[in-house]
C-alpha cells in the first residue's frame, strides 16, 4: 500500500525498507523533468532534509526525506532518463530506497484516498 506526504512524495514499505518517489500530481505540476539528482547509497537521511533534487524545464525542486533512515538503493536508470520519471513517477520512476530507522514512521502518513483529497 502506498503512503503519501504533504510534500508530494509517496512511499511503499517492504519489510523495513521503503521505496520513495514523487507523486503523479507533483510530476504533473512540475512539467517536463530534465534532471534528477539522487542521494548516495549509504547516506543517512534525516526527515525534512533535502534527499534528492528533481528539475523541470521551469525550476529545481528539493525532494525532502519523508523519514529518517539509510539509503540502500537508488534508481540510477531514473537519473539517466528524467523524462521517464515524469511518465511513470509512481512506478518505474521511483527515486531511492531507504531502510527506516523506525518502521512506524509511516503510520501518520496519508493513504491514497486522503492524498487525493489533499490535492483537490
Amino acid at each position: 500500500m502506498l503512503r503519501f506526504t504533504e510534500d508530494h512524495e509517496w512511499l511503499r514499505l517492504d519489510g523495513d525498507v521503503a521505496t520513495v518517489g514523487i507523486t503523479t500530481h507533483a510530476a504533473e505540476q512540475l512539467g517536463d523533468l530534465v534532471f534528477i539528482e539522487l542521494p548516495k547509497v549509504g547516506a543517512t537521511l534525516k526527515k525534512g532534509e533535502a534527499a534528492a533534487v528533481v528539475e523541470s524545464v521551469k525550476a529545481a525542486s528539493d525532494v525532502y526525506a519523508p523519514v529518517d533512515g539509510e539509503v540502500v538503493e537508488v534508481n540510477d536508470a531514473a537519473a539517466g532518463e528524467p523524462a521517464g520519471v515524469g511518465a511513470d513517477p509512481q512506478g518505474e520512476g521511483w527515486l531511492y530506497k531507504v531502510r527506516l530507522a523506525d518502521p512506524s514512521a509511516l503510520d501518520p502518513l496519508m493513504d491514497e484516498a486522503a492524498y487525493a483529497d489533499f490535492t483537490k
Binding site: 514523487i22 507533483a26 525550476a59
Partner: peptide
C-alpha cells in the same frame, strides 16, 4: 518537495 512553491510562482 517544493511543488507548491513551483506552482505558486505561476
Amino acid at each position: 518537495m517544493t511543488v507548491e512553491l513551483a506552482v505558486q510562482s505561476e
